[in-house]
């Protein structure tokens, strides 16, 4: 019995080590081979909206609690792009900061609530109240927000499918 258990354990360990991937790959396998520069995506975001890209860069920030997003530095100073993944599907490690990540995903855009003009929680209410007749300095602020409503600032992110962190 002892011999059988030992052989079983040795076999299991051997097979596991053979198939182990080091834990540096996240999500699905990367399918693209040509990387796109982050600066190129940020300069022409509409062109990449909805398209699958492969990017590479330093991980400069990681979601602290759930590892559900990482921020990748661009090839130019001051530039970075956020890679968001479905909660639990991929969990980026908190110690990935500073390491190089190769990420495949789809570019998508969001309008952050605070920049979505007067729409959404808070903003809508604030403008609604002011529009009831209060013509003050605040009303001017509200008008500014109304202008923003017409031209909301889109933020471009990448929905991560797979990644390799080196």
């Amino acid at each position: 019995m002892k011999k059988t258990a030992f052989i079983f354990l040795a076999l299991l360990l051997g097979v596991s080590l053979t198939f182990a991937d080091g834990g540096k790959k996240y999500g699905k396998d990367l399918t693209l081979t040509k990387t796109t520069k982050v600066s190129e995506i940020l300069e022409n975001p509409e062109q990449y909206d909805g398209k699958k890209v492969l990017i590479e860069g330093t991980v400069v920030n990681v979601c602290k609690k759930a590892g559900c997003w990482i921020e990748i530095a661009g090839d130019k100073d001051y530039e970075s792009i956020t890679v968001k993944v479905n909660d639990g599907e991929i969990v980026f490690p908190a110690d990935a900061k500073g390491k190089t990540a190769v990420v495949e995903g789809e570019v998508f855009s969001v309008v952050p609530k605070s920049e979505a003009g007067c729409k959404g929680e808070g903003g809508d209410k604030e403008c609604g109240d002011k529009e009831k007749g209060e013509k003050s300095e605040n009303h001017e602020n509200c008008k500014d927000k109304q202008v923003k409503k017409e031209t909301p600032q889109k933020k471009y992110l990448i929905k991560g499918i797979g990644a390799v962190i080196k």
Binding site: T58, Y78, S80, G98, T100
Partner: peptide, 9 residues
């Protein structure tokens, strides 16, 4: 240092 990033001037 393993890497760095200039996020603003």
């Amino acid at each position: 240092v393993i890497s760095s990033f200039k996020s603003s001037p």
